[in-house]
Amino acid sequence: MTQRRPGSVVKASRLGAGPRTTEARSSERRINLPALSPTAESAHLRLGLAIAATFRPTPCAGSDDWLSEAAEVRAAAAESCTGCQVLSLCAQYADAAPEACGVWGGVDRTPAAAKRGRPRTRKSA
Score class of each variant (00 low, 15 high):
99 E>T: 05
1 M>E: 09
103 V>I: 09
67 L>R: 06
44 H>Q: 08
79 E>T: 15
93 Y>Q: 09
122 R>K: 13
122 R>H: 07
77 A>E: 03
78 A>T: 08
79 E>Q: 15
28 E>H: 11
7 G>H: 11
68 S>F: 12
62 G>Y: 04
120 R>V: 14
63 S>E: 02
38 P>W: 02
83 G>V: 05
112 A>F: 07
81 C>K: 03
11 K>C: 14
105 G>I: 06
85 Q>E: 08
115 K>P: 11
104 W>H: 04
61 A>K: 02
59 P>A: 00
34 P>I: 11
37 S>N: 08
49 L>F: 03
118 R>M: 07
96 A>G: 07
38 P>A: 08
117 G>K: 07
61 A>R: 07
47 L>N: 01
23 E>S: 06
23 E>H: 09
75 A>F: 00
116 R>E: 08
66 W>M: 03
95 D>H: 08
101 C>K: 09
78 A>L: 06
67 L>S: 07
123 K>I: 02
108 D>S: 08
29 R>A: 13
87 L>N: 04
44 H>I: 01
52 A>T: 02
97 A>Q: 06
115 K>N: 11
78 A>M: 08
111 P>W: 09
5 R>A: 13
42 S>N: 12
51 I>A: 05
24 A>E: 09
58 T>R: 01
76 A>V: 02
40 A>S: 08
24 A>G: 15
15 L>G: 14
73 V>Y: 01
53 A>I: 08
39 T>H: 09
99 E>K: 03
33 L>A: 05
115 K>L: 10
49 L>Y: 07
24 A>T: 14
25 R>I: 06
